[in-house]
Design a binder for these strands. Structure first.
Lengths: 146, 146
DNA sequence: GTCTTAATTAGTAAAAATTATCATTTAAAA
DNA sequence: TTTTAAATGATAATTTTTACTAATTAAGAC
């Protein structure tokens, strides 16, 4: 995992470079997504920030997530049913392994993906910009409960 | 692409086997998703069915998609922003290449995926149930327009 | 073919997730 | 300090999906 402190600094620099103000609320959100423990949802981020900012508005969370997405500093993991979740620690596309029982998300190492991307580009004549690779299954812990 | 007529028959058989009635509306929806031209959204399916069933309710489309999903006869492609789209012609997980300009969806051939799945299962100790692999890029036609 | 019944439908209300609006506040540069 | 454009909080509006209910209908029994 990338050093969360470095990630916070990188995010702040990017925000400044694009003329965004560094408000306390924004900073708090940046700190949470820089760690991205458990790949939090908007609601989870909201709850966590509210501990320090009880008056925080949900709209502010959405607003900042939108900006961080636009700047490429946060990765959105879309779930067909259920809300999106976010990773600001590794904001580049990477594979996920998701437990359908408890929702845990693990990041596996998969080197062969780049090769695959090239193959697809050649075969389809698309200019590939990004990708999404998620495996859904049952984690070791949830398997033991069955 | 699998023969759409065979797909319709397979879907109907599955529906019957599970005690579902074959209504004209349901049949019309099955026919559309069996072809899945362009990987239609709920709205697209709704519009298309309404040509033959002007009184068709949107709820009916959602209800039948839900049933077909449960029976494994339709695959849901989730898009983080924007609605879901569906493939009832190839209802098993398979890679997609999606044009971010025009929304076109292409199904590339990628054999190496099974091997990847095994690797991930070993590395993470998850029991992998399914997966999702989508590439996003710009198709040949949209590239030529730039 | 007719009858019976449980499933399905249409229409609409409700819920959930996200985005827009706007008056007020505030970060940051002069 | 002062100024100003951007950000916030609160809430309304929008979008997507699900829930509800009375009326309709497919499919099996007779």
């Amino acid at each position: 995992m990338a050093d969360p402190e470095k990630r916070v600094k990188a995010i702040i620099r990017k925000l400044r470079d694009h003329g965004h103000k560094i408000t306390p609320q924004r900073l708090a959100i940046a700190k949470i997504v820089a760690v991205s423990n458990g790949h939090p949802s908007v609601e989870a981020i909201y709850e966590q920030v509210r501990k320090d900012f009880p008056t925080m508005s949900l709209a502010t969370v959405y607003r900042n997530i939108f900006i961080l997405k636009s700047l490429g500093e946060i990765l959105e993991l879309g779930f067909p049913d259920g809300g999106n979740r976010y990773d600001g620690n590794r904001p580049f596309p990477h594979p996920h392994v998701i437990c359908v029982k408890c929702g845990k998300v693990v990041d596996p190492v998969l080197d062969s993906l780049d090769e695959m991307k090239k193959e697809v580009a050649e075969e389809t004549e698309f200019a590939i910009l990004t990708h999404r690779l998620d495996f859904f299954g049952i984690c070791r812990h949830c398997q033991s409960l069955e």
